[in-house]
Amino acid sequence: MSPLLLEVRDVIAGYRPDLPILHGVSLHVGTAEMVTVIGPNGAGKSTLVKAIAGLVPISAGSVAVEGTEVTNLLTHKLATASIAYVPQTANVFTSLTIDENLKLGASTLSKADAGRRIAKAYEDFPALTQYRGQKAKVLSGGQRQMLAVARALLTEPRLLMLDEPSAGLSPLMVSEVFSRLKTLIATGVSILMVEQNVKAALAISDRTYVLAEGRNRIDGDSAKLAGDTEVAAIYLGAGGRKR
């Protein structure tokens, strides 16, 4: 198995300490590995990535990046932990231009590095170039997702966390976004992705965790889980085997 980049152990988290949404969730992500988290609505998938990103307080358990504990990390220090996060909604500043969105993403870098990496972002995502001076509100859902990913990659993270990157996108755009993510894996970036689109998630990722009601239910190789009847059962509300 590849060395652990991210290790989440028995995390209990929620917006209020007396009302946890996650009840002891664990997972790990290796280097250059794509891991997806799936589960029915209310399973706590988004809460999990938000808790790792420091946006939801963790009341018990731990999060570690390459062995260094980063539990309840201050969100603005994500980049220093080599993590980038793309939220599901409101993941770009619609009142700012595309250029300004990228400049903001590069605000922790020196001006020289920021300029170089923004130029590379336009090379990697050429569709954004024609809109660079326009406000991000003019972009389509897929283009906004591209901008959000381009922004997240500016700090050259080792782990990219995405919350439902396919939400609201056309099937064509979903395959475009996912193929982009595949190319990122080839560059050594690891991806932890929350997805509602189960088929696409299982098809693209190396390993998958299935959550239900804030708990781990099943995990394993995505290819094997694709034919697992229990995964379907969890989605249909029939529950699954306990870990």
Partner: peptide, 17 residues
Amino acid sequence: LSMRALAENPDLVRING
């Protein structure tokens, strides 16, 4: 730029470091 962004989405500003 950060001030303008903060008026729109504070969490995303934090996510941007």
